Every structure is written in C-alpha cells, then in structure tokens.
Deep mutational scan, measured.
Amino acid sequence: KAKLLVLLYAFVATDADTICIGYHANNSTDTVDTILEKNVAVTHSVNLLEDSHNGKLCKLKGIAPLQLGKCNITGWLLGNPECDSLLPARSWSYIVETPNSENGACYPGDLIDYEELREQLSSVSSLERFEIFPKESSWPNHTFNGVTVSCSHRGKSSFYRNLLWLTKKGDSYPKLTNSYVNNKGKEVLVLWGVHHPSSSDEQQSLYSNGNAYVSVASSNYNRRFTPEIAARPKVRDQHGRMNYYWTLLEPGDTIIFEATGNLIAPWYAFALSRGFESGIITSNASMHECNTKCQTPQGAINSNLPFQNIHPVTIGECPKYVRSTKLRMVTGLRNIPSIQYRGLFGAIAGFIEGGWTGMIDGWYGYHHQNEQGSGYAADQKSTQNAINGITNKVNSVIEKMNTQFTAVGKEFNNLEKRMENLNKKVDDGFLDIWTYNAELLVLLENERTLDFHDLNVKNLYEKVKSQLKNNAKEIGNGCFEFYHKCDNECMESVRNGTYDYPKYSEESKLNR
C-alpha cells in the first residue's frame, strides 16, 4: 500500500503543469573576455578590431598615390635624371617610397634638414613645378651647363633637372645676384646647392675665386655659405661634395641669391598645395585598381571598426592602431551559463540550468507544459528593451572611439638618435595607453552587458513569482510547478501579467 502511494505521488508530481523562465541559446562559437572571465561563450557579439588588409596600394578616395619607385624624396625633388618619370607629377593622395629606393642625390652630399622637408611634404597633396630662374636668361655671365658622370643618364654625363651647376664663363666668375618674388599665391619650395671641391685647383678651375661665398636671403631665411675645400674619400667617382638646401617662400615674399662661386642654382621650384589627408609611407606593396579610405604600408583597410592592429602608420580615415589581438564586445547572452554566478555589478545569474535553442524569437521568455502540450514563448517587451539598450551602447562606444585619422611616422637624422629613441618611447607609451583603454573598455562593457542580461532574466522570474504567489511552488531551476490546472489561456495570463490569483487560489489551497 505504501509503495502504491509513492508511485501515485510521483505520477501526480510529474503530471503537474509547469512554467519556466529562460533565455535564448544557439550554436554560436563566439567568445568574449570580461573583467572576471576569459573566453566566455556568448550567443552574439561584435568585433571592434580590424585585423585584415588587402595587401595592395590603392587610390585614396579615388585619387591615385605618387609612387616614387626607384627614387626617394631627395632624388625626386632635386631632379635626379633617373627620376625623370616623376617630373610630370602634379597631385596625389599620398606618397609612396620603397624601403630600398636607390636614386637620391646622384652627386654625393646631403639634403640639409631632410627630415623636416619630409614632414612638410606629408601635408602636401599637389604642386606646380615651374621655372623659377629661366636657364637661358638668368645667368648671362656664367656657364650653366655643368654636368657630371655621377648623374649620368643613358650613358652620358648629366645633372639634376631642377638645378643648374653654374661655373665660370671664360676665365671669370663675376659676382651674381638674382631674385624671385613669389607671385603664386601659395608657398613655394625653393631648392639650391653649394659645391665643396676637393682641392684649391678644382676650386680655381671651376670658379676662378679662391674665397667664394654663397648667400641666400628671404624674410624668414638668411644664410651665408662658404665652400669647404678638403680631400675626401671618393664616392660615386667624386672627391667633391654638394650640400643641398631648401626653404619655403611665403606668398609675396622675395628670395635673393648672391654668389661669387660654388652656387648650384635653382632652375625649377614648386608651388605647394596642402592636403590634410596626405602623407608619406614606405612600402613594398604594389599598386592595383582599387579604392580605399584608409591606406597602410601593408595594404588598404576598408573598415568602419574603431581599432586596427595592422600597422601604426596610416593615411586617410583609419581606425586607431592598438596592439590588441582581440577586441570583441558582447551583444547577446551567455551561451554556457554559470550556476549560481554573481556578476561584478550585482546581477544574479545561473538559476537557469541552460539556455534554450528552441526559443528563437527572443532573448528571454517562457517554456510551459500542461495537458494541452508544451512550447516556448519569447517575452518580446523585455527582449526589445534589451536590444535597444545594447545597440545604443555599442553604437555609442564605437562612435566615441571611432575617431579616424592619419598617423604618419616621424623623421630623425643620424645625429638625432637620442631624440628618436625618446620619441619611440613616448609613442610606445601612448600606444600602451590606447591599447589598455580599449581593452579595459571592452572588458568592463562585456561584464556589464552579461550582468544586464542576467538581471533581465531574474526580473522576469520575479515578475512571475509575484503573480503566482503560493498558487505554485519554485522547483529550483527557474521553473514553477502549479498547484492547479493551468491551461493555455492561464499560461498566457502569466506571461502577459494578467494572471488571476484569486481564481485559482482555492484549487491551489486544496492541492498544497
């Protein structure tokens, strides 16, 4: 008799109507990190870190770059004969040098303040090359056809396309004075040089004057150069050297050249137009028929994500570079809930034993079982409120962090190594801060989002509990077992918050 009662009780308990509160689960393989956990499985997430590029040089917003090819900045601007293909260059979106560009200054020497000139050019998007001192009329008392084997072109001695090597005419090199007034309405880049012979005999042979000088002056520039005559090792078949100089001439300003020898005179100059998204990159990537809004030396990035880990040097509207390998923000729920887990921000989770793959029309909802059958029903209101809140948060985070910009490298010469090392340390410090901030932001927001979901499920549970009161009992896994019969209409009233407690209280009292 006792065995019969136990079996009867078990049958009745199993047959009781139930309603459970749960949440969506799926077959997603997404994982995120939080402050407290690593690799948390979630139903949905968004990636904030771009880690792919196309490996190509592309047009930037429809404008092609200027590819210097086998030449570098120095060779292009001075007019190395091997860089003749660059003479027609007028406009570009950015400038590309190759790491091993070999054609710079063909006659050995240095372009002074080269690093600063590169910085200036990094904001130039177009130029006009014009004859600042016409070759045939500007130097009537001097020979202007100086050439050298060091600047050979097609097997013949030649010289820079933008400079003139002035030497004596006959047996004399009379003092020369020439000036140019900038009437271009924009900055003009003027380049010139000073020749330093290897011996007094060479000085006399070329310029006749043993104590020659070169003077260059404008409103913002004033220097006097004296040739340094000295024996030097042979470089590119030359014992002599040429140093090259430049200045930016403001609109309306005048530049005056005065010399008694050794002047490498300007022939062509450049009127410059600035462009905020221009820059110089060093890259071996090849040019393709493609378009982008962000270019790196590795390749083009076409992404609206706020961060990238491809390269710190970028041109155009680019994500911020960070050292992170993963920045994924959760938008959905835990896919593998932890039992009795309390989140960092106070939300209680884990009283549900598992997510439901059968509930596909919402994030949170119900599963019921009664004599009429069983089924899932999503709670659309709480789901939609959660979707709206999380979507707004993700968009806000992306908008705040998605300050796209150009980031170019800084140039230092060989004598500025300590400054370069200090600059690298400062840049590394800023990069570490950006990386830390980005990672911390994602970790915190992921923790908040998961706790937010847990709290929403808990609130749904409490909503049902407050309606049923003692007409049902909690069975410990997020479910309630009714003390009365609850048909589909009754189940719907529980879900929509209109459950009639008094209607079922007498039946429940008897069954309790």
Rank of each mutant, 00 (worst) to 15 (best):
F133H: 05
L166I: 15
V194I: 15
G193V: 05
E82T: 09
A41Y: 07
C71V: 12
G55K: 04
Y244V: 03
A265W: 11
V149Q: 15
S91N: 06
E115G: 12
V190N: 00
C58T: 03
Y173H: 07
S93F: 07
I63S: 04
W92Q: 02
G62A: 04
G69Y: 06
D253P: 00
L36R: 14
S158L: 03
L166C: 08
K234E: 05
F130Q: 05
C106I: 06
T29E: 08
E131L: 08
E136I: 06
G62C: 05
L66Q: 06
L272E: 01
C20N: 05
N145M: 08
G170S: 15
H44P: 00
L111Y: 00
K59H: 14
E250M: 02
G69T: 09
K186P: 00
V32S: 11
H44R: 02
K1Q: 12
G252P: 00
N47M: 08
L77F: 09
F144Y: 06
L4H: 12
T226R: 09
S199F: 08
V46G: 07
I95N: 02
S219P: 08
E116F: 04
N243G: 07
V147R: 14
C83L: 00
Q203S: 04
G210V: 04
V42H: 14
A41M: 05
S158Q: 14
E136N: 15
L57W: 13
V42Q: 10
S138C: 05
V188S: 04
T260R: 04
G79M: 07
D171C: 03
S122G: 15
D171Y: 00
G69V: 02
T34N: 11
I19A: 05
Y221S: 10
S219W: 00
A269F: 00
L49F: 05
E97T: 09
I112K: 12
T74Y: 07
G62W: 06
T143W: 02
S273M: 12
L206V: 08
D33W: 07
S91E: 12
H24N: 00
I280K: 04
V32G: 06
S122N: 12
I264A: 12
L189Y: 02
P140C: 13
V32E: 01
H53V: 07
R241C: 03
E115T: 02
S125Y: 13
N243I: 10
N72A: 09
V214P: 01
Y94Q: 10
A231N: 08
N141S: 09
R118V: 11
W165M: 11
N178S: 15
P266D: 05
S179N: 14
T247F: 09
K135D: 12
A105W: 00
F270I: 02
Y173P: 00
R90T: 10
R274S: 10
Y245A: 10
H239E: 12
G193Q: 08
S199A: 08
A2T: 08
W92M: 06
G22W: 07
R161G: 06
G252D: 01
N39D: 08
V188P: 01
P251V: 02
N243M: 12
W139E: 04
S28V: 07
L164P: 00
